[in-house]
Nucleic acid binder design. Structure first.
Length: 308
DNA sequence: TATCCAAGGTAAGTT
DNA sequence: AACTTACCTTGGATA
């Protein structure tokens, strides 16, 4: 096993591990204490988080288990990690440690709500989740609470994912497209996926059969990329935007979920243009365009945690 | 204890 | 294209 530490002071801007992985944008990091993210920001903030990442072109050729925790503050703390290999480039990639967060905030418009949200969760970054697990987890997110989406992903991993060992401990990788495509709808329903079960199975089948792959969207202009992702079963505009923002690096994407729709009603009613596409454009402009998705994620977490 | 309700929406069927 | 409706499941609220 290898281990090491990353000094937050070496990054461009602060970093808050807990806010980043518990804010409801990623369902792929698991708290070592088994916490379900039910209670937001309720523990000490130095918990270990664990994941298993499949090979990332240019970074790893193997499947890698990673454990990470943050000690100290969001401005001057350290990220401690343990892995089967050098996890520094992987963590930079997955947790967007390569973003210049200060510059992103500077480019954000001066809106009172945004300022409160940014202040409340200083150091929260977006994630760069592996695209297949990201797609599946957001297909599962339809009409579902955040804690229960985590439960679904955990059951998928523990039931169908390969076991990976690190220092004697066992972790489950996320199932591959092949592994999920082989399951039946009723098998997936047994994991409490409900009506999402056939969506997951059919989308996995589309990818396993090479009919389509969500990563192909990365090369398209933003709105075409969103349209392209909706060919997967169970993927509409909202889920497509989540995959674009949290996996494929389209930082301008603003997923129009119930929270942001309520926000639009209360704070920016002129941005409600009826259709998803038109409203999306309007709120994207209001939130600063290029990094509108960053702003959306802060607002989502802030309001969900009870802020006003 | 029983019933009701809403939760990060999407697909399919009607106008 | 815009508008309705059904859809699994379950924790928490209400009676």
């Amino acid at each position: 096993m290898e281990r090491g530490a990353i000094d937050v002071r070496a990054l461009d801007g602060p970093f808050d591990l807990q806010a980043t992985v518990e804010s409801g944008q990623s369902y792929l990091w698991n708290r070592a204490d088994g916490g379900t993210y039910e209670t937001l920001h309720a523990h000490g903030g130095d918990e270990w988080y664990e994941t298993v990442v499949d090979p990332i072109p240019g970074l790893t050729t193997e499947r890698v288990p990673i454990r990470v925790r943050q000690e100290g503050g969001v401005d001057d703390g350290t990220l401690q990690w343990e892995s089967s290999t050098d996890a520094v480039p992987l963590l930079e990639h997955l947790l967007r440690l390569d973003d210049d967060l200060d510059a992103i905030l500077d480019a954000t418009p001066d809106l009172p709500l945004l300022e409160r949200a940014y202040d409340a969760y200083e150091g929260m970054r977006l994630t760069r989740d592996p695209v297949f697990p990201c797609l599946i987890s957001f297909i599962c997110s339809a009409q579902m609470r955040v804690a229960r989406i985590h439960g679904m992903q955990r059951r998928l991993r523990e039931t169908y994912g390969d076991v990976v060992e690190l220092d004697g401990a066992q972790y489950h990788a996320f199932p591959t497209p092949d592994q999920l495509a082989e399951r039946t709808e009723s098998e997936l329903r047994e994991l409490s996926l409900g009506y999402r079960a056939p969506y997951v199975q059919r989308t996995a089948e589309m990818i396993a059969s090479r009919e389509a792959h969500p990563a192909e969207a990365a090369d398209l202009p933003y709105e075409e990329a969103r349209e392209s992702l909706t060919r997967f079963v169970g993927v509409g505009d909202k889920v497509a935007d989540c995959v674009l923002l949290f996996s494929l690096g389209f930082l301008e994407a603003v997923p129009l979920d119930t929270w942001i729709r309520t926000t639009i009603e209360e704070y920016y009613p002129d941005c409600d243009r009826g259709s998803y596409a038109a409203t999306s454009r309007a709120i994207r402009d209001r939130l600063g365009g290029e990094y509108a998705g960053y702003a959306q994620t802060y607002v989502f977490y802030y309001l969900r945690a009870g802020g006003e």
